[in-house]
Simulated scan of single mutants.
Amino acid sequence: MPSLPAQRIADLKTFLKGKDYNQDLAIFISLKIHSGKYRFFLYDLKNGVIINRSPLFLMVPDYSC
């Protein structure tokens, strides 16, 4: 299973401190990863693990007709 950038996680935890946001879970989406591969991640901030991942397909409508 891939890991998420430690610096991004640390930055997010710092941002969340003292705010009225969910302190337990975070969603990460990487559009650098090729479509069809796992690029949507649900991350447990308290335990430091990815608890779910999924391919993310972006559907762009075709308005050319």
Score class of each variant (00 low, 15 high):
10 A>D: 15
6 A>P: 05
41 F>V: 00
7 Q>I: 14
34 H>D: 14
20 D>Q: 10
56 L>P: 06
12 L>T: 01
63 Y>K: 09
36 G>A: 01
27 I>T: 13
62 D>N: 15
15 F>N: 04
61 P>C: 06
26 A>I: 01
37 K>F: 10
38 Y>E: 06
45 L>M: 13
36 G>F: 01
3 S>C: 10
20 D>S: 10
1 M>N: 11
58 L>R: 10
4 L>C: 08
21 Y>E: 09
47 N>A: 11
16 L>A: 14
51 I>K: 14
31 L>P: 02
56 L>I: 12
29 I>D: 01
13 K>A: 10
41 F>P: 01
33 I>Q: 02
8 R>S: 12
33 I>Y: 00
26 A>T: 01
51 I>W: 07
5 P>V: 05
30 S>T: 05
55 P>V: 08
38 Y>A: 04
12 L>H: 01
54 S>F: 05
5 P>R: 09
2 P>I: 10
23 Q>V: 03
3 S>W: 05
33 I>W: 00
50 I>T: 14
10 A>P: 04
41 F>M: 04
58 L>H: 07
32 K>A: 06
17 K>D: 12
61 P>L: 08
24 D>I: 03
39 R>G: 01
57 F>R: 12
19 K>I: 01
10 A>W: 04
64 S>M: 02
52 N>Y: 14
47 N>R: 14
22 N>V: 04
54 S>K: 11
52 N>R: 15
61 P>I: 07
30 S>L: 02
16 L>V: 06
7 Q>G: 09
27 I>D: 05
45 L>T: 01
21 Y>C: 06
45 L>W: 03
60 V>Q: 12
56 L>K: 09
42 L>V: 15
14 T>F: 05
23 Q>I: 02
16 L>H: 03
33 I>S: 00
54 S>W: 05
1 M>E: 13
5 P>Q: 08
44 D>H: 03
61 P>K: 12
25 L>R: 14
60 V>G: 05
53 R>V: 04
5 P>A: 09
16 L>C: 06
2 P>E: 14
28 F>A: 02
29 I>G: 00
15 F>Q: 06
18 G>W: 01
61 P>R: 13
63 Y>G: 04
16 L>Y: 06
31 L>W: 03
44 D>T: 01
8 R>P: 01
32 K>Y: 02
5 P>F: 07
65 C>K: 11
21 Y>F: 14
23 Q>H: 09
7 Q>C: 08
61 P>F: 08
10 A>C: 06
64 S>V: 02
47 N>E: 15
17 K>R: 15
14 T>R: 14
46 K>T: 08
12 L>K: 04
64 S>F: 03
32 K>F: 00
30 S>F: 13
49 V>A: 11
52 N>H: 15
32 K>G: 05
57 F>L: 12
64 S>C: 02
20 D>G: 02
16 L>Q: 06
4 L>H: 06
49 V>W: 07
61 P>M: 06
11 D>Q: 15
41 F>R: 00
4 L>N: 05
31 L>R: 09
9 I>A: 05
16 L>T: 02
12 L>E: 08
41 F>T: 00
9 I>Q: 07
34 H>S: 12
31 L>E: 12
1 M>L: 10
53 R>N: 15
47 N>C: 04
39 R>C: 00
24 D>A: 13
31 L>Q: 08
23 Q>A: 09
49 V>F: 12
6 A>R: 11
39 R>W: 00
59 M>N: 14
41 F>E: 00
